[in-house]
Simulated scan of single mutants.
Amino acid sequence: MTDLDEALGLLHKEDRENARSLQDVRVKVLDAASGTVVPLRRRRFVPVTVAAAALAVVATGAVVMKPNDAAPQAPPVAGSTGPAAPTAEERAVSRMSLVSAKDTLVGAASKIKTSDQPVPPGKYRLIVVTGEYARGVSFGSSVDDPQPLQGGTWMLPQTTKTWIPSDVTGEWLNRRTVDGPPKWLGGNVSQQKAAYQPSPTDTGERKGVCGDFFPQSQPRKVCGDPGDWDSPAFYERLPRNPQALYDWLRSYTSPKGSTPQAMFHIATEILSSGLMPADLRAEWYRAIAQIDGVVLSEGKVTIDGRTGIGITLADKLQRTELIIDQERGDFIGQRTLVGPETDETWLPEGTVTTSVTITTTVVDSTG
């Protein structure tokens, strides 16, 4: 989901400035999926800010996670030494939910339009990303000085618009706006101590050939890089077969053990680009349906006034949902919710920490 609907060359900003290789970036994204760092790709929406505090950790687009790929387990029975085994009824419900999610994804795939709206010469594809993102500061502990995690979390409303010319090697335009003051979600310290830290890249307008909005960064962004999912070349090289795509996701996430969490994370991030072609998107849904643990969310999910079905993968730390228009098969967006055992104990389970919707249209001009 990132051929950049946000088209943000921004999303590679930190890595280019640090002169990291593409493989380094890939490992960092996978680290995010396994919960060791903040998800990298969300930084194209909300850039990282550094809090002026020792051991501060900034959450952008999702609260900070710790390594834990285990699935949530039922609470232990009194007097037992381990988790309670699920009942036959619980196992049946779980199987029904899993089958329902797979059937829904496959059904959504069959409803996707066979082609996307073309971009005639002189026109532009406009990708609008409307979202709210958790931004906060966490004060951690060290081995020498263990202590409970402290901090606070804010929610930032932001819109990113990217105009991409019909000739994608031409000049792109990216515009970011903050749509209101940050909202305090909660904390176990005062708002003053966990004060919101704005970033200079939260707002502004930037231009760049092939979406290279930071031309002074190193290594340089390369037009047509087939390994960069900001580039159409990336999607052209992917197979159009769900099993082959599933195998690709498993191989791509192999540095982190090809866990369901890593595969679902990467699949959702790439889908979120807004530039994935319709024919590939259909098979992509079918590939996601094969990931272990994917279930159907309870009820319909509404974000930014748009309603769809939620396809979910959860662990103890967080729950990630991708939202699909059940009638048309269109990808609406995604959201992340706090799990039952998050480190940010001041956030109740179910608190939304990321909520993003994506729309794509063809327009006559930029701006």
Score class of each variant (00 low, 15 high):
residue 346 W to S: 03
residue 76 P to K: 03
residue 188 N to F: 05
residue 80 S to F: 11
residue 133 Y to H: 14
residue 126 L to W: 10
residue 212 D to R: 02
residue 91 R to W: 01
residue 83 P to V: 11
residue 294 V to M: 03
residue 162 T to E: 04
residue 297 S to H: 14
residue 65 M to V: 04
residue 288 I to G: 06
residue 321 E to G: 00
residue 281 R to G: 00
residue 262 A to S: 15
residue 273 S to V: 06
residue 198 P to N: 11
residue 346 W to K: 07
residue 196 Y to N: 11
residue 225 D to L: 11
residue 66 K to C: 01
residue 176 R to G: 08
residue 207 K to F: 13
residue 66 K to D: 09
residue 100 S to G: 15
residue 229 W to I: 06
residue 174 N to A: 14
residue 63 V to R: 05
residue 338 V to A: 06
residue 159 T to C: 05
residue 246 Y to L: 12
residue 47 P to W: 05
residue 316 K to Y: 04
residue 306 R to D: 00
residue 158 Q to Y: 00
residue 44 R to P: 00
residue 91 R to V: 13
residue 142 S to I: 03
residue 331 F to H: 09
residue 183 K to V: 15
residue 293 G to Q: 08
residue 281 R to E: 01
residue 257 G to K: 08
residue 78 A to R: 13
residue 201 T to R: 08
residue 42 R to N: 09
residue 65 M to H: 14
residue 60 T to K: 03
residue 268 T to E: 11
residue 86 P to S: 04
residue 312 T to N: 12
residue 133 Y to S: 14
residue 13 K to R: 15
residue 256 K to P: 00
residue 292 D to L: 01
residue 264 F to P: 00
residue 196 Y to V: 13
residue 171 E to V: 15
residue 86 P to H: 07
residue 193 K to L: 15
residue 113 K to N: 14
residue 328 R to E: 13
residue 12 H to F: 14
residue 72 P to W: 03
residue 137 V to I: 12
residue 326 Q to R: 09
residue 248 W to T: 00
residue 1 M to R: 08
residue 118 P to I: 07
residue 339 G to M: 06
residue 295 V to H: 12
residue 257 G to S: 04
residue 233 A to L: 10
residue 246 Y to V: 00
residue 340 P to N: 05
residue 151 G to I: 11
residue 230 D to K: 12
residue 8 L to N: 11
residue 209 V to H: 06
residue 160 T to M: 09
residue 208 G to D: 07
residue 237 R to P: 00
residue 343 D to R: 06
residue 267 A to H: 02
residue 60 T to H: 10
residue 136 G to T: 07
residue 367 G to V: 12
residue 69 D to P: 02
residue 90 E to W: 02
residue 149 L to N: 11
residue 309 I to K: 09
residue 87 T to D: 06
residue 308 G to K: 14
residue 202 D to I: 05
residue 10 L to C: 01
residue 138 S to E: 13
residue 262 A to L: 00
residue 69 D to V: 14
residue 47 P to E: 08
residue 85 A to I: 12
residue 43 R to N: 11
residue 328 R to C: 03
residue 327 E to R: 07
residue 57 V to G: 13
residue 172 W to L: 05
residue 322 L to N: 04
residue 217 S to N: 14
residue 294 V to W: 01
residue 181 P to G: 07
residue 153 T to C: 09
residue 74 A to I: 05
residue 62 A to L: 09
residue 332 I to Q: 06
residue 228 D to L: 12
residue 21 S to T: 15
residue 33 A to R: 00
residue 213 F to T: 12
residue 332 I to P: 01
residue 352 V to G: 01
residue 44 R to Y: 12
residue 1 M to F: 10
residue 77 V to F: 08
residue 87 T to M: 05
residue 260 P to V: 06
residue 191 Q to V: 03
residue 306 R to N: 03
residue 42 R to T: 10
residue 106 V to A: 05
residue 208 G to K: 03
residue 178 V to Q: 12
residue 232 P to V: 10
residue 115 S to D: 10
residue 155 M to Q: 13
residue 40 L to H: 10
residue 71 A to I: 06
residue 331 F to K: 04
residue 125 R to T: 08
residue 321 E to C: 02
residue 325 D to C: 04
residue 363 V to G: 05
residue 125 R to P: 06
residue 33 A to P: 01
residue 276 M to F: 02
residue 205 E to V: 15
residue 335 R to A: 01
residue 140 G to S: 12
residue 24 D to E: 10
residue 80 S to L: 02
residue 152 G to D: 02
residue 7 A to C: 13
residue 50 V to W: 13
residue 67 P to R: 12
residue 280 L to Y: 07
residue 253 T to H: 02
residue 136 G to H: 10
residue 341 E to K: 14
residue 48 V to Y: 09
residue 211 G to F: 02
